[in-house]
Amino acid sequence: MDDLLGAIQSAIRLMLTLDPDLIEIVALSFEVALLGLGLAALVGLPLGAALALFRFPGHNLAVVAMNALMGLPPVVVGLFVYLLLSRSGPLGSLGWLFTAKAMILAQFLLVLPIIAALTRQVVADLAQEYDEQLRSLGVGPARAIPTLLWDGRYQLVTTLLAGFGRAIGEVGAVLVVGGNIAHVSRVMTTAITLETSRGDLSLALALGIILLLMSLLVSAAATFASRLAATIDG
């Protein structure tokens, strides 16, 4: 009980005092998560839409694989990226290991299947409604990709939020590839892990509360904005 109360107190204190270390960590968390998400969206949105609109040999397998990859343990992705970026690995010469770039790459891989799989579902549902109309207009599947992504934008906000939630909340991948280096690769989740291992449970929980509030803010803002736009757009 003391720990819980202490956690809430120190969360409030940390936020009110705008602790510079905390700001740095929060900023890096968002930078890494948003860039990983952005890259995953650039690839995952068209990829998911293409999976919904094109039929090809192995299509079902690809869909099943994509859905299964949504549940990939972050630490597995972390290990994969670690081995890729290790100086002894194939991309070692990039020198990305233990930098924000490695973390962005890991989160890109982690979020990509989520974006692609959820996008596929959204676009497939939409395509059922649009199919005859688009074919009547002479729209082929390739041209339908941007059309349906744009028309599904309000549902896709939820997809992007799911990806963001995964990225901002996971620790397994960023800890392994980032190394939790102070001022370089320390993000909210790895800081929480560190404070837990120092036995400072209430500080760890306080950081967790702040992380939760921040993600809540992002999610609420995105949901509100897209609801508003959807109402205006019909």
Binding site: E31, L34, L35, G38, L39, K101
Partner: peptide, 14 residues
């Protein structure tokens, strides 16, 4: 704007 910002941020990160 969001995409451009993301790309700029990424390059600055580099």
């Amino acid at each position: 704007a969001a995409i451009v910002t993301a790309l700029v941020a990424l390059s600055m990160n580099g």
